[in-house]
Amino acid sequence: MWRRFLTYRAGVLAAAYVLLLVLIGLATPFLPGPDPRQISNEVMQAPSLVHLLGTDELGRDVLSGIIHGIEVSLTVGFAAACAATVIGVVIGAAAGYYGGALDLLVMRIAEMFQVVPSFILAAVIVALSGPGLTRVVAVIALLAWPQVARLMRGEVMRIKGLEFVDAVRCLGVREPVILATEVVPNALAPVLAAGTLIVAQAILLEAALSFLGLSSADLVSWGRMLNSGQRFLYNAWWLSVFPGSAIFLTVLAFNLLGDAIGVALNPRTEA
């Protein structure tokens, strides 16, 4: 499994990048450098040795903002992906294993979420209920669980028909136990890959909401920086390019990582 993963070089690069982000995110409070909210007289400075990535219209340090933004992006990404994965796994597993009316109901609800353009729905919900990190996470999780549920349902339906499940049933094991100990562990691999992709979607969605100003004003987030920076695109490119690149690279990394996990966990793909 590891060998397959390592062979997939882009995945390794992406994993290294994500690891670096996580480390910086965790270490942010202890890092030297100015507070990203600190206003100063050095406004709209181009990148220099003092301010590596320049400063914005209120004299705030862009590098510091990007570093502090990691925390928001990763928190939103991981929290939303975890929530969506847990909800999706439970609902998808139950629907796939027990089938019948439960399955029908769950899949219709999942379809409803999938046909509504998720960004617009998210924007409407946040605009109506007011900004806040928890709300953003909840909205993203609500929009993303159907992907996981659908995948989980398919895997569970495939695996519950395999002979080893029948063999265990003949041992007299109870159905919920079979589902939890035999079926679900064998169905998780593609779901974990999908979960990683949801991190990317969540980061992008959070950035987009912040860009539209739909996040709380005192949070330092990449989307928010991009939002205030785009007004000065022609005279202060660094205000848009650096937060934009941070979003782009991070979303790309999680996508590559998700693909790599999918490949690594699939025993049928050869190195």
Binding site: L162, E163, F164, D166, A167, V168, E182, P185, N186
Partner: peptide, 9 residues
């Protein structure tokens, strides 16, 4: 198929 009748994990 004994392979299929044993949980691979």
């Amino acid at each position: 198929d004994a392979t299929a009748s044993l949980n691979p994990r």
